[in-house]
C-alpha cells in the first residue's frame, strides 16, 4: 500500500454500525459496572484513547498547521466533527475571556436509535466525544476540560458540549527518548 494513494481518501462506514456498536458497548459496561457514574467516566477514558490517535489521522489527512488561537482550534475541531461523525456543530457561547466555548450538536449519529431508560438518566452517554476532544488536544499540547451541558437524550433541544482551555502543555521528551 503506497502512502500517496491512501492519503486523502476518507473512507466511510454506515453510521448505524457505529451507533449500534457503541450502544452495545455502553449496555455491556452498564451490566459490568453497577455505578452509572463509573460508566460515564470509563466512556470519557475510552474517548480519550480514541482522541489521542484520531488527532494523528486528522493531521495526516488534512495537513493542517498550528493553530493561532483558541478560535482557530475550535474551527479545526468543528471540521473534525464533519470529517469523523459527518455532522457540523455550531461553535458558540464564548466566554468573555475567550477561553471557553461550546459546540452545539443538533443531531448526533451516536444517539440515533438511542433512548435512555429512566433509571440511568444520569449516564453521560456522549462522554466519549468529550474524551476524544480532550485526548486529541492533549496531543497538540493543549490541556482542556470538556463536558456536556445539554443532552438531547435527557430531553434538551440540542446537545451542547463545553470546552475549557486550561493551559498549554510544555514540550516534554517522552521517557526513554533523547
Amino acid at each position: 500500500m503506497s502512502r500517496s494513494s491512501t492519503r486523502f481518501d476518507v473512507k466511510k462506514v454506515n453510521s448505524e454500525l457505529v451507533t449500534l456498536t457503541y450502544g452495545a458497548l455502553v449496555a455491556q459496561m452498564i451490566k459490568d459496572m453497577d455505578n452509572v457514574d463509573d460508566v460515564s467516566k470509563q466512556l470519557e477514558r475510552l474517548g480519550y484513547n480514541m482522541g489521542i490517535r484520531l488527532i494523528e489521522d486528522f493531521l495526516a489527512k488534512t495537513g493542517t498547521g498550528r493553530c493561532l488561537d483558541l478560535k482557530d482550534t475550535a474551527d479545526k475541531i468543528q471540521s473534525a466533527f464533519k470529517m469523523y461523525l459527518g455532522i457540523q456543530p455550531n461553535v458558540t457561547n464564548w466566554s468573555p475571556s475567550g477561553d471557553e466555548f461550546s459546540f452545539i450538536l443538533d443531531s448526533n449519529p451516536l444517539t440515533e436509535l438511542v433512548e435512555l431508560p429512566d433509571d440511568i438518566k444520569t449516564l453521560k452517554y456522549c462522554n466519549v466525544i468529550c474524551g476524544a476532544i480532550r485526548g486529541a488536544l492533549e496531543m497538540v499540547q493543549l490541556d482542556v476540560q470538556s463536558w456536556i451541558i445539554q443532552d438531547q437524550l435527557k430531553g434538551d433541544q440540542n446537545t451542547e458540549i463545553r470546552v475549557k482551555f486550561i493551559r498549554r502543555l510544555e514540550d516534554a521528551m517522552p521517557a526513554g527518548e533523547d
Partner: peptide, 10 residues
C-alpha cells in the same frame, strides 16, 4: 448516514 472508517476502527 455515514461516519468515517477511522472513527469506527478506533
Amino acid at each position: 448516514g455515514e461516519v468515517s472508517l477511522s472513527c469506527f476502527a478506533l
